[in-house]
Design a protein around this nucleic acid. Structure first.
Length: 604
DNA sequence: GCAAGGTC
């Protein structure tokens, strides 16, 4: 009997369905000579320090460098502390029984580093010796699954991928556990001051932005505005220069003449392509902006929709789909033809050529972008409905036509030069789906500008001196933080470039929401309205570690580079030795530095 | 009491 092990039940069931296996058992499905079972993500993890004999939190133990790492069952928190996760235990027992009976194992965990680790940890923990082959697919359509089974790879092809995964896991343990204990112990506060490769750079970003914002000294500057009149239609134009002093601006204001000469009129159409389909992060950002949901809330609502089979797999980092999934999109759109809010747009997309911006098989990683499944929901709670509509609406946007705008710029001479700019949407295209206002800066803009000709003289009916102030970068909120994490704090607005940066981002789509919650739980940050603001504890920790490598996003980038080299065959022990050396150094540093930490009893 | 990774 061959046993197929998937990363999660949904995939196990999907594969079983393709094979036509229908006999449902507890924790697996049988049929056609195969058994289909699954994990629930990581069932096993690196064992806690006490399992290597490092009891309590003790400076004597530091740095903790276990000669050989052990695996232990996933834990859950209860009132009695951490205990084995009963669900994980039960499923692992089922997998053990099936592996014992198996002639061959087919590894169908997600096609990526962590998917490989999920399987190998199980395999080695159970001391299994059965031969295994690897299924490597990036979408779960029938065709992709069948094709994948015709092209099963030898299990050993992925040994180096496992090595890189195992290194990632061990390195995070070594640095995180040791740094956390070192700082907590030396601070003498008896509280947990956690540090880690992902959480500490994230905390640093929040603190740095907060301090930058708080210490920002606004500068006042002045502009002059005029209001020309074109056949009764007034519009506003602003001086093309800004002035440091009121006097300079006042002089310009006084030179405004009774009429203004139109020097140039520049009207050009601009195509605005539809947004890409949602991945988890972009959906969390939108949910935060539109509804004020936290990253954690958005994820759990989405998980609920996924378990109700209403949307595809949510923890994806890809905003693209492959051609196989695209082939199903017209049918999917047609399901919304009679939909109350989306019906009109769905009908408009029927039978027309769809925009293929979100179609690119090469950019589909472990999972494709989030789509509705085509299963129609009824009686969703308002929150679930809101998230569902964001997924369904985004599908209608993503395959829609470009939005065509006309951007007009009028330059007028009246003493000095003045500029009026306006944007008019000529063809709404994808923007018709939600009928949203353009988020781009619109404060200076006129919604519509009258038709004027170059060389025309227009009466100036009003003029004014404007006093303005420069503004600091805003504090992070969950949406802007999630966006910043994807590119490790570097600000990149170009959507395509951002996609390319994802491999060196901080954390993964699946873990970011939990990481923000960790920072809140540690009392490092608090939510103030929508903003994420550091506490005095957070700032004190930041102050101690800000110049350490562990607080730099680049640490992840450096590790990723090394891990990728390991995946292509480079030495494992060399990297491990470096990590151990770094662990010793940072532990020693923090045992000293932590003494300087000052955390008042009364926290903000 | 602690990391980051995955998932129900």
């Amino acid at each position: 009997m061959k046993v197929i092990l998937a990363e999660k039940p949904s995939v196990g069931r999907e594969i079983a369905k393709v094979f036509g296996a229908t006999t449902k058992r507890e924790g697996y499905i049988e049929g056609k000579g195969y058994t289909f079972t699954w994990a629930f993500g990581h069932l096993l993890q690196l064992a806690a320090p006490q399992e290597y004999g490092y009891y309590g939190w003790n400076v004597q133990n530091l740095p903790m460098l276990p000669p050989k790492f052990k695996l232990s069952l996933r834990k859950v928190k209860t009132k009695d502390g951490l205990v084995d996760d009963p669900g994980a235990k039960k499923q692992l027992d089922i997998i053990k029984t099936l592996f014992d009976e198996a002639t061959e194992i087919i590894v169908a965990t997600d096609a990526g580093r962590e998917g490989e680790l999920i399987f190998r940890y199980i395999y080695y923990y159970l001391k299994c010796k059965k031969p295994f082959k690897r299924l490597w697919i990036s979408s779960q359509t029938d065709a992709a699954i069948k094709d994948g089974f015709r092209n099963l790879k030898p299990g050993t092809d992925y040994d180096t991928l496992f090595n890189s995964a195992h290194c990632r896991s061990q390195s995070d343990w070594l640095v995180g556990m040791n740094a956390t204990q070192a700082l907590s112990l030396s601070s003498g506060t008896r509280s947990v001051l956690s540090l880690g490769r992902v959480q500490t750079p994230t905390l640093a970003m929040i603190c740095a932005r907060y301090l930058e914002n708080k210490n920002f000294v606004p500068e006042t500057f002045y502009q002059v505005a005029i209001q020309p009149d074109k056949d009764g239609q007034l519009f506003r134009a602003i001086s093309d220069k800004s002035f440091k002093t009121r006097e300079e601006a006042q002089a310009v204001l006084e030179k405004v003449e009774p009429t203004g000469l139109v020097l140039s009129v520049d009207a050009k159409p601009r195509k605005e392509p539809p947004p890409l389909l949602h991945d988890l992060s972009s959906l969390q950002q939108e949910a935060n902006k539109r509804k004020g949901f936290t990253a954690d809330q958005a994820l759990s609502l989405l998980q609920n929709l996924y378990e109700s089979k209403l949307v595809t797999y949510p923890r994806t980092g890809s905003r693209y789909i492959g051609d196989d999934v695209f082939a199903e999109v017209p049918n999917l759109i047609a399901k919304f033809n009679n939909h109350e809010t989306f019906g009109k747009q769905a009908n408009l997309l029927t039978g027309v050529k769809l925009n293929k911006r979100s179609v690119n098989a090469k950019k589909v990683t472990d999972h494709h972008a989030i789509l509705p499944t085509g299963e129609m929901p009824n009686h969703l709670t308002p929150d679930l409905q809101a998230i569902y509509d964001m997924v369904a609406g985004r599908m209608l946007e993503a395959f829609n036509q470009d939005c065509i705008k006309e951007i007009t710029k009028i330059v007028i001479q009246s003493g000095a030069k003045y500029v009026a700019s306006g944007t008019v949407i000529k063809t709404a295209g994808w923007r018709a789906v939600f009928n949203d206002k353009d988020e781009e800066k619109k404060d200076e803009e006129n919604p519509t500008l009258p038709k004027v000709q170059q060389g025309e003289n227009l009466p100036i009916v009003n003029k004014a001196l404007l006093e303005k102030q420069t503004k600091p970068k805003p504090l992070y909120n969950e949406a802007s933080l999630l966006k910043a994490l994807e590119t490790a704090g570097k600000e990149i607005d170009d959507e395509e470039l951002r996609q390319a940066m994802k491999d060196s981002g901080l954390g993964t789509p699946a873990t970011r929401a939990a990481m923000i919650e960790t920072l809140l739980k540690r009392n490092y940050i608090v939510r103030e309205k929508k903003n994420l603001v550091p506490t005095v504890t957070g700032l004190a920790v930041y102050d101690v570690v800000k110049n350490q490598q562990i607080a730099q996003a680049e640490l992840t980038g450096n590790w990723e580079k090394r891990l990728e080299e390991i995946r292509s065959g480079a030495s494992v022990s060399e990297f491990q030795d470096e990590i151990k050396a770094y662990t010793s150094t940072i532990t020693k540093d923090l045992l000293q530095a932590g003494k300087a930490i000052v955390i008042p009893k009364l926290n903000r």
